[in-house]
Nucleic acid binder design. Structure first.
Lengths: 120, 120
DNA sequence: AAAACAATTGAACAATTGTTCATATATAAC
DNA sequence: GTTATATATGAACAATTGTTCAATTGTTTT
């Protein structure tokens, strides 16, 4: 059975309501990026890491692992995805990698999420 | 190979830094809920739906499908997950279901994400 | 009554995800 | 040099996810 999401939906001219919303829609890649941003914070291990880095500006991998209660490996893997998603940055001193939040934007977005969960 | 993320990490007493952050950590289910909140917005189809509902208070399923350019079925499935996650509510009039955002919290969180993507 | 319509739903499927385990780098200490 | 330490990484695996397709439900129209 064919669905009809083309330019009209039964009547000749599409509802102005639909047309006006359509005009405000952003590009495909915009929504992709938006979803990716939220996805970066959509895993408990990652929210724990971000939360920890909100408390303490800089933490090394094994300290984070100890704080959030997971293995170094799992922590390192998630830190890598957080790095790819530009949520954290790091600088390596000797054999130790110090991680921190990438910018204050992250803090705001994360804080808004915190508020949402706490006021429930 | 054993990893040691127990209460000390090589030295006898754990760094005070780590201990102090540990004290601030929330429960497992808190981080679970936090992650779930972000996860609700971590899919492009869902961000499109939410964006559309930010423009127009109430929209029916087929209008949303038309606006975001997907099938009614895919839209309905995602609306169901958004309902389960308490991001949208709906009321049915005859054969038409009118969806809207559940509360203003969602708007704030979503807007913060938008800002993050736009200022890039 | 039947047909048309809006929405929902379940099953199936490919794709993605997060962890574990083992191994590999790289640096520091000896 | 060797050994210990901190981190990173690749492969494998189970689990979850989003879409499609087909069928279904419930409502309105004829």
């Amino acid at each position: 059975m064919k669905e009809k999401n083309s330019d009209n939906e039964g009547s000749f001219v599409e509802k102005e309501k639909v047309q006006s919303v359509k005009k405000t829609m952003k590009t495909e890649s915009f929504f992709h990026n938006l979803a990716e941003t939220f996805k970066a914070m959509s895993d408990p291990t990652r929210t724990k890491i971000i939360y920890a880095l909100c408390q303490e500006k800089e933490l090394c991998v094994s300290d984070i692992a100890s704080i959030i209660g997971t293995t170094n490996s799992a922590t390192s893997h998630q830190l890598k995805t957080l790095r790819n998603m530009k949520l954290v940055k790091y600088n390596k001193v000797g054999k130790v990698s110090y991680y921190s939040l990438d910018d204050m934007h992250i803090n705001n977005l994360f804080a808004e999420g915190l508020r949402h969960v706490e006021e429930k």
